[in-house]
Design a protein around this nucleic acid. Structure first.
Lengths: 367, 367
DNA sequence: TTGTAGGCGTTATCAT
DNA sequence: ATGATAACGCCTACAA
């Protein structure tokens, strides 16, 4: 037992067992089958150019000896690795991991393997990661939720492989992308809230300048306009897409003379923070304030109350991205910009606005 | 604009641009630098066997021409790919994705790339995925939360590469593993709950037979024993580690003549379901029933109320797994079984037991 | 300090 | 229908 940091390690020297044996090569199989290695290659690829009987025999031998053709050697000659590189800012994020899952499944179904690289939003690491992809000669690249698109541009274009971005925050820099229809989705929730009689509807956004925040904000504005609600700049605050920052942003809203009666959040994570802030102010959701999210993460149906939100088909977006990357890899020379529909999911975090109280209870200053 | 499923695709044929050009090879650089390719190879590896001046010149040329040595070709000759395979049952899981993140970071720091394979708990896919790994000649394999360990056994052993399992559910089948100290962790929470005066403490487990469930259950039992609380089999129910099944299991507990006053759940996801069931029965957490989880997922601090739970250092576990895989890859021939300490995190889902009511309010049947 | 030759395990192109 | 031979891009002797 050796102590190692917070973990205990048991190390027991194993007796025999030298170095690992090499896997059999195509030549080994050829020798066993008494044929030349090209014949083995053909048999294994079910080429019609080889006698059915011998082909069967060869395959049997290969099978029995546990032969697995080296994708390394094959890639060297065919000049394609059936491999793609996937760059994420962090896998440990419920949105990203769903997209990753969709990508991996589709890739796998087509015989592709995926290199996962978690940049952790560190530019240094990001550069390294992309260089690795270059060295590994990936056939294509997918980047999700890139917040540093511009950084990639020179490196990636140098690699001369197709690249698809999922929910890029700096569109325009790349040609191919898969994105949700942010505007329509945000407009739908905001309209839903307006339909419940709310007039003081806040927008709790992501960081300034990100594409999806800009689009969702535009959807919010459009819904206000459609409902004839005047836009109040004081009801717009910004977080960073995570609960902590959203809490602070919500605190700001609640400190207003007249706080909003509803708040549309940039995403579910922000809504989590907003709800927490609201509770900590002794208020209730949705009785005092309605809250909406965006994404429909798994957790959205298990918050208290369950969250009204806009569903992004995350896994499907991953599939689509991979499907189209495959197309590009196969030589399809075209521009691909995919926009996906979202879906409004009404749960219990939104309710009819309270009838206005004679003079409000919370703010000290009457108006 | 072409409609495609739920997505809209814009395809615009691009004018010029034929097929992608090949990346420069070491020979191209050699020609440019007026040296032989081995010299280039040496220069790029900072070998002392090459004139410092020329080495610098060569590197400059390589840099300028965007040369990236092919890991494919290198792997073929060196017989190691600096690549590992990572098998998960699903990435789209907050526990798994944290572990994956830790593994990826560590791998990357050591110049390794990771192939991610999401088996989706489908045995067919699982087999395929491992075969891909074999063909790609990965240097090692990590499998997280394997629920099908036995299935891998024959395939993996055939590959002759080191394998490390993280939180395996069928220990013993493999030699190398990284696991949390389940028993101690579960005992700590259960003891915490007992310390709050609870006597009717339920255990809401995972599926029967899984190692971590067995161990956590043992911890629960140990805590009861230590507190002098008799074990009641009726207070033990089983879910499947996810909220839905846990809800049903909790429903069962609440239907008892005398429901528990506290419930220790197998993991946070189960606790989510339990809390929801409790709420749907018109009861409150923790006033009526205390609830505990296990894992300390990100979400655990954002539930209402925030969840008392046992923290697993998920990312760290990934790091450790990768660190030790690296060791094994480098030829260290030993048995590695790592056990990590957990940490009790007390939040607000646990409270002192209510003083016993004269005759209980809920059950209709008096006893 | 540098260049030449050979080979890693495939597939591809010729012959036969 | 099959075999010999040559790549693919790199590294590692060995020779100069």
């Amino acid at each position: 037992m050796i102590d190692e940091g917070d973990g205990k390690v048991t190390k027991v020297a194993r007796p025999g067992s030298k170095r690992a044996l090499h896997q059999p090569s195509i030549k080994d199989i050829a020798r066993l089958a008494q044929v030349s290695h090209p014949t083995v290659s053909r048999a294994l690829q079910f080429s019609p150019l080889v006698n059915a009987k011998t082909a069967e025999r060869i395959r049997k031998i290969a099978e029995d000896s546990g032969y697995r053709a080296s994708a390394i050697a094959r890639g060297l000659v065919t000049r394609q690795t059936r491999t793609i590189g996937l760059v994420v800012t962090t896998v440990a994020d419920p949105f990203t991991s769903e997209v990753v899952s969709g990508i991996e499944q589709t890739a796998n179904d087509h015989g592709y393997s995926v290199f996962l690289a978690d940049s952790n939003a560190d530019p240094e690491r990001e550069k390294r990661v992309v260089q690795y992809f270059a060295e590994r000669r990936v056939d294509g690249i997918i980047v999700t939720s890139s917040r540093v698109g511009a950084l990639y541009l020179p490196m990636l274009s140098q690699m001369r492989v197709p690249i698809i971005l999922v929910n890029d925050q700096y569109p325009g820099a790349f040609v191919h992308s898969v994105m949700i229809r942010n505007l329509e989705g945000a407009q739908a929730v905001a309209a839903h809230v307006a339909g419940l009689g709310h007039r003081r509807i806040a927008y709790l956004g992501d960081q300034f300048g990100y594409q999806s925040d800009v689009e969702r904000f535009a959807g919010y504005r459009a819904a206000l306009d459609a409902a004839g609600i005047p836009f109040l700049p004081e009801l717009v605050v910004h977080g960073d897409g995570k609960p902590e920052a959203a809490m602070r942003a919500m605190d700001t809203l609640l400190a207003l003379h007249r706080p909003p009666t509803a708040v549309c959040c940039y995403n579910d994570m922000s809504a989590l923070g907003a709800m927490r802030s609201i509770r900590m102010h002794g208020l209730r959701v949705p009785e005092d304030i309605s809250v909406t999210g965006f994404d429909d993460l798994f957790i959205a149906s298990y918050t208290q109350p369950p969250l009204t939100t806009v569903r992004q088909p995350m896994r499907r977006m991953g599939q689509l991205a991979m499907d189209h990357l495959l197309l590009l890899i196969s030589g399809e020379e075209s521009e691909v910009k995919i926009r996906i529909d979202s879906e409004l999911i009404v749960r219990e975090s939104t309710a009819r606005v309270k009838p206005r109280e004679p003079q409000q209870s919370k703010g000290k200053i009457l108006h």
